[in-house]
Structure formats: C-alpha cells, structure tokens
C-alpha cells in the first residue's frame, strides 16, 4: 500500500515537471509572439497533428515496421555470430575485427551508398536499422556466453553432455541478461537507423515527414513527428523490458514481505 503511494508520487513528480514545462512553453510562445514556423506552441503542434492524424498513422506504421524489421534481422544475425565467436577461436580471430571495423564506419555515411545499391524502398531502411542495431547484440551476447562460470562447464563435461545440450540448458540461458541488455540498446538504435534511412531518400515514414515538413516551413508537423518517434522508441524499449521480465522472471528483484 505504502509502496504504491510512493511509486505514484515517484511518477507524479516528473509528470508535473513535464506539464509545467509545456505550460511555460505555451505561454512563452504566445506572450513573445514567436513565429509559428520557428517555434510553434504546444497547442499549435497538437492541432496540426490532429489534422494529420490519418496520414500520421500510415507514416508511423512504415517507420515502425522498418525499425522492427531491422531489429529482428539483427537478432537473427547477431546471435549465431556471437555463438561462433565464443565457440571458435578461429572464428573469433576472423570475424571479431571485421565486426568492430564495420561498427567504426559511420552508418550515416554508409546509408546513401546503401540506398543507391539496394534502392529507395522500405527494405533499404530495414538494412540501415539492422546495421546500427546488430553490434550491441553481438557484443553483449558474446560477452554473456563467455561469462558462463567455468565450474558449470566442467560439470556439464563431467556429465558428458553434448555441446548443444550444454548450450541450450546452461550457456544460452546464463547469457540471457546480457542478451537483453544488448536488445535494449539495439531497439533504440534501430529507430534511429530507420529514420536515418528515411532522411537519405524516401517518400514514406516519419523521417520523411520531418524532412518534407521542414522544407515547407511546417515546423509543427516536424515537432509532432519527433514526438511520435520518441513515443515509438519508448514503447519499444518498454516492450523489450517486458519480454525480458517474462522470459527471465528470476532476474526480477526478490519480493519483500
């Protein structure tokens, strides 16, 4: 009971701060008569967003599935790669430097070339999102797989369990917390990747809306898109946290009575 009151007040304080900031912003932009195309008031942003609501729905959907597509692809590629890296010293020497090299290349610089090669459709954005998202998953999963207590591996060996059995029953579950912390970084990066892809060249998606709205001085629409993008990122991050809690309930802080 007391705990719920405390958690309520914990979320009430930032909520009140946010509300206060919006009110100040509204009053300031009215009082100072700042032109709408430079800094629209919250009410104006809301009005424009409402007018655009059906079109926003379509653009949000496009960005969302580009993000999720890239994210899913990065999991599918990263987990086997991490496994190879941990299990084979030869693969580690062959692959790891390449992955680090790939990570060092600024994705924003690569994106135009990529779009040129793959085309300007949604698939190219999936690839950009994948490129930025897969690195943290590979690194964290590999770290987690390598962090299995040596005693557990010796125990498995003494039971003469196969490598696959040891992986499925011991190593991978042990690495799950690392895997999920990789996913949490990756999901927010995937949103950025999708938007960067849209910036380079597209006719759909929230990144495209921001670019075209600003070129027509419709700053309110750009603001609304930014807010929508933040909401997407937060919701997806929350979803990953939720899945983590469902998949690894043993990681939740112990209930106190």
């Amino acid at each position: 009971m007391r705990a719920s009151v405390r958690s309520l007040s914990r979320s009430a304080v930032p909520a009140a701060t946010l509300a206060g900031a919006i009110v100040v912003w509204e009053l300031a932009s009215r009082g100072l008569r700042i032109p709408k195309f430079i800094m629209p008031a919250p009410s104006e942003i809301a009005a424009e967003a409402w007018e655009w609501r059906y079109r926003f729905l379509g653009h949000t959907w496009v960005t969302l599935y580009e993000t999720l597509g890239g994210f899913a692809l990065s999991i599918v590629v990263a987990v086997p790669l991490a496994t190879l890296i941990v299990y084979s010293p030869w693969m580690r020497r062959a692959i790891y430097p390449l992955i680090v090299l790939l990570q060092a290349v600024p994705k924003i610089a690569v994106a135009p070339v990529l779009l040129l090669v793959i085309g300007y459709g949604e698939f190219s954005k999936v690839i950009v999102a994948f490129l930025v998202a897969f690195f943290p998953i590979v690194v964290d999963t590999a770290t987690g797989l390598a962090a299995t207590p040596p005693e557990l591996l010796e125990l498995s060996r003494s039971y003469r369990a196969s490598a696959l059995k040891t992986f499925v029953k011991v190593r991978f579950p042990m690495a799950l917390p690392f895997f999920f912390s990789g996913l949490k970084v990756a999901i927010t990066l995937a949103v950025i990747g999708a938007v960067v892809g849209e910036f380079i060249g597209s006719d759909k998606g929230l990144g495209y809306v921001i670019l075209s709205a600003t070129s027509y001085w419709k700053t309110g629409l750009a603001f609304a898109s930014m807010i929508l993008l933040s909401v997407i990122a937060i919701v997806l991050f929350g979803a990953v946290c939720l899945v983590e809690r469902l998949v690894c309930p043993w990681l939740a802080p112990a209930a106190e009575e």
Binding site: E151, L152, R157, S158, R160, P173
Partner: peptide, 19 residues
Amino acid sequence: REPFPDVGIVFQHPVLLPW
C-alpha cells in the same frame, strides 16, 4: 582419459542455475 559418469563434483561455489 576422459570424464566418466560415475563421479559427482561439488565446487567451492554452488553454481546452481538461477532460473
């Protein structure tokens, strides 16, 4: 020459599977 099944091992730390 290799691990055999008829042996039990206990280490300094329990190393249980937390899940």
